[in-house]
């Protein structure tokens, strides 16, 4: 399944209208041990680029931006008890939110996996 990335290191994986979103493996490596993830309320509408969550590691707390516009239809409640899921599986079980995309064409503005890997290599 295709992953798309933002320059701020979020990812989105579209399944029909719905996109799972989280932060990239590279982002997690930079943060270190994740100790807490603050997730948005279900039903909140977000715009692409808007701060929707906060990820907190031992030494930093960072905003996480919505990769796509839409409505938050699910959040990963497993992260409340096991924030380390983000370290273990950043782009799988460590997903943050599921967004019902209002405009799936927005993914065209995001990077595909190859473009993102090239960006990360240059950092």
């Amino acid at each position: 399944m295709a992953y798309f990335y933002t320059k701020d290191h979020e990812w989105a994986r579209l399944e029909g209208q719905n996109a799972f979103c989280g932060i990239s493996v590279y982002a997690v490596e930079q943060l270190g041990d994740v100790v807490y993830v603050e997730l948005p309320e279900i039903g909140r509408s977000v715009k692409a680029g808007e701060a929707m969550a906060v990820v907190e590691s031992a030494k930093a707390a960072s905003d996480v931006y919505a990769p796509l516009s839409g409505t938050v239809i699910a959040v990963n409640t497993a992260l409340a008890g096991k924030p380390e899921l983000v370290n273990e599986s950043a782009e799988g079980e460590g997903w943050f939110v599921q967004i019902q995309a209002s405009d799936p064409a927005e993914q065209n503005a995001l990077m595909d996996s190859d473009a993102y890997q090239a960006l990360v290599k240059g950092l």
Partner: peptide, 16 residues
């Protein structure tokens, strides 16, 4: 011992 939760403080989170 280690400081924790200080990542929510002003010297890291600024206006947030």
């Amino acid at each position: 011992f280690v400081l924790t939760l200080s990542t929510r403080e002003q010297h890291i989170r600024r206006d947030k």
